[in-house]
């Protein structure tokens, strides 16, 4: 069963003919060509596919594309603006929150979602928010440091703006 699916992906309105049984992750990767969103497991066990739907972190591998009709979807490809990495992206790069990079898009999107609602997360809050995202390289320490560094950047730029 195919029908037209409309949503906004990384700021661009889209309308695509999409099957009812298509997962959001497959829609993003295969229809939109946004392969930054990764598949690491057979469904909901690793968090690599996390994207933002209306600002909230979602597992795109356990979400039907059509369930997101009308929503604003953001992927890792949409995070850098005007050639500048987002605070989360630059922190993951600078602090080595990313080694092999495969869990990174999911980690970045989950962190982004956390920091949009809580710019001063405690270490425990970071651990809890990212608890569903598995990384096999880092032992998580530098990921936590990356999120903390991103929070600092965000808070500093807010203060500067005020």
């Amino acid at each position: 069963m195919n029908s037209v699916l409309q949503m906004t992906v990384n700021g661009r309105p889209r309308a695509d003919v999409v099957a009812d049984n298509m997962l959001l992750v497959d829609y993003l990767r295969e229809v939109c060509g946004l392969t930054g969103t990764k598949i690491g497991c057979d469904g909901g066990e690793c968090g690599a596919c996390t994207i933002l739907a209306d600002g909230g972190a979602r597992l795109s591998c356990l979400t039907l594309a059509h369930s997101c009709a009308g929503q604003v979807i953001e992927t890792v490809e949409g995070q850098a603006t005007r050639g500048e990495l987002s605070a989360v992206q630059s922190s993951f790069h600078e602090k080595l929150g990313s080694q092999c990079g495969y869990c990174t898009p999911g980690m970045i999107m989950t962190s982004e979602s956390l920091l949009r609602t809580n710019t001063n997360p405690t270490e425990d809050e970071i651990r809890e928010a990212l608890g569903g995202n598995i990384c096999r390289c880092t032992g998580y320490i530098k990921i936590i440091e990356s999120v903390q560094a991103a929070a600092e950047i965000i808070n500093a730029s807010r203060e500067a703006a005020e």
Binding site: L34, T35, G36, T37, K38, T75, V76, E77, Q79, A80, L85, Q89, S90, F92, H93, E94, K95, L96, S98, Q99, G101, Y102, T104, P105, I108
Partner: peptide, 15 residues
């Protein structure tokens, strides 16, 4: 930082 870090944090890195 790793020289290929920017590719990984932007989703440009192709596996």
């Amino acid at each position: 930082p790793l020289i290929d870090g920017p590719d990984k944090v932007t989703g440009r890195a192709k596996y």
